[in-house]
Amino acid sequence: MRIGYARVSSAGQKLDVQLGRLADCDRIFHEKASGATAKDRSELQKALDFVRDEDVFVVTKLDRLARSVIDLAGIVQRLQGKNVDLVVLDQGIDTTTLYGRVQFNILAAIGEFERELIKERSMEGREKALARGVKFGAKPKLTKKETIDLIRDFEAPGCSKTEIAEHYGISRSSVYRLYAENREKSV
């Protein structure tokens, strides 16, 4: 029996091409989930549980299966333990042959190397942006003037913190946090 597995990383991506390539499989498992770790993908786990002796597990590309050598090795070991072969269509990998196993290991190592390079470049870009003064995270909900007004309202007798929060469209805990962070600045 041929068991297919397809995965895309985000909701905006489509599975159509992969599903088309896996059309000759007897059963296809598919999901929209990050490939960072194999353990967090429920459909992959179901597919690995489903396969039986002498089945063939089919994916279109190796990176659809996993992104790290450790995850790939674990998946292949699990498949081998069940006497299940792995076929990766786009890379021509077939673990029933010695050449296919060697090719699998080389491509897995390259895939992990590529992922580490992407992480490294992303971190460098983030550090450069921080050095240029780029601020990450959510934009402040209140302007400087609104923050000064909030502090004035906070200190006014008889003004409830819940009313202040509702007036500025923020939570009560944000009222207290903003007051604590900015009270010296407004004096």
Results as ranks from 00 to 15, higher is better:
residue 50 F to D: 14
residue 66 A to L: 07
residue 25 C to Q: 04
residue 185 K to M: 06
residue 70 I to R: 15
residue 139 K to Y: 02
residue 31 E to W: 07
residue 28 I to Q: 05
residue 100 G to C: 08
residue 92 G to E: 06
residue 155 E to M: 02
residue 183 R to G: 00
residue 135 K to L: 05
residue 21 R to V: 02
residue 96 T to P: 00
residue 53 D to Y: 12
residue 45 Q to P: 00
residue 45 Q to G: 02
residue 60 T to I: 05
residue 75 I to H: 03
residue 165 A to V: 08
residue 125 G to Y: 04
residue 43 E to D: 11
residue 20 G to H: 10
residue 185 K to Y: 01
residue 29 F to D: 10
residue 122 S to K: 06
residue 46 K to D: 14
residue 45 Q to N: 10
residue 68 S to V: 04
residue 94 D to F: 02
residue 52 R to Q: 15
residue 138 A to K: 15
residue 154 F to T: 03
residue 156 A to D: 04
residue 6 A to K: 11
residue 138 A to F: 11
residue 155 E to C: 01
residue 3 I to F: 02
residue 22 L to N: 10
residue 107 L to K: 09
residue 141 K to M: 14
residue 7 R to Y: 04
residue 117 L to A: 06
residue 41 R to F: 09
residue 9 S to V: 04
residue 54 E to M: 08
residue 90 D to P: 00
residue 125 G to L: 05
residue 123 M to Q: 13
residue 140 P to I: 09
residue 157 P to E: 15
residue 114 E to N: 08
residue 105 N to G: 13
residue 57 F to A: 10
residue 165 A to W: 05
residue 38 A to Y: 02
residue 148 I to T: 14
residue 136 F to L: 03
residue 84 V to F: 13
residue 174 S to G: 02
residue 182 N to H: 14
residue 119 K to W: 00
residue 47 A to W: 06
residue 156 A to Y: 00
residue 183 R to Y: 12
residue 86 L to D: 11
residue 44 L to N: 05
residue 108 A to D: 09
residue 14 K to D: 15
residue 71 D to F: 02
residue 70 I to K: 15
residue 149 D to P: 00
residue 58 V to H: 11
residue 48 L to R: 12
residue 96 T to K: 15
residue 123 M to E: 15
residue 91 Q to S: 01
residue 170 I to R: 04
residue 29 F to L: 07
residue 176 Y to N: 12
residue 175 V to R: 04
residue 146 E to H: 07
residue 52 R to W: 01
residue 150 L to V: 08
residue 7 R to D: 10
residue 134 V to C: 00
residue 96 T to Y: 01
residue 169 G to A: 06
